[in-house]
Amino acid sequence: MEIGLNHYLVLSTILFAIGLVGVMRRKNLLLLFFATEILLNSVNIAFAAISHYYGDLTGQMFAFFVIAIAASEVAVGLGLLIVWHKRHGKIDLDQMSTMKG
């Protein structure tokens, strides 16, 4: 039973779908961030698998940059979330409709 590239791609797709369901279901902004992390991680698995099965290091490089972007996104996002929580006391998505878009 050989594990091929398709196994990893199917796994990353399943994880991506789980993350998408999380993004669409959640109302709490903190848990929305968690779902975003799941999305980024599933893509990283696919990058690493393609890098391994094609013998090319480019996939791993992109995974590194994705990790760096995820780290900075968390820092800025949590800072904004804390500021919002200080002003309004809640971090629910439905109450962030001040622009009435």
């Binding site: 780290a71 900075s72 996104e73 820092a75 800025v76 949590l78 800072g79 804390i82």
Partner: peptide
């Protein structure tokens, strides 16, 4: 990452 660090410190 430096920009994100400064932004995080200033915001929080």
């Amino acid at each position: 990452l430096l920009v994100a660090m400064i932004a995080g410190i200033v915001l929080a």
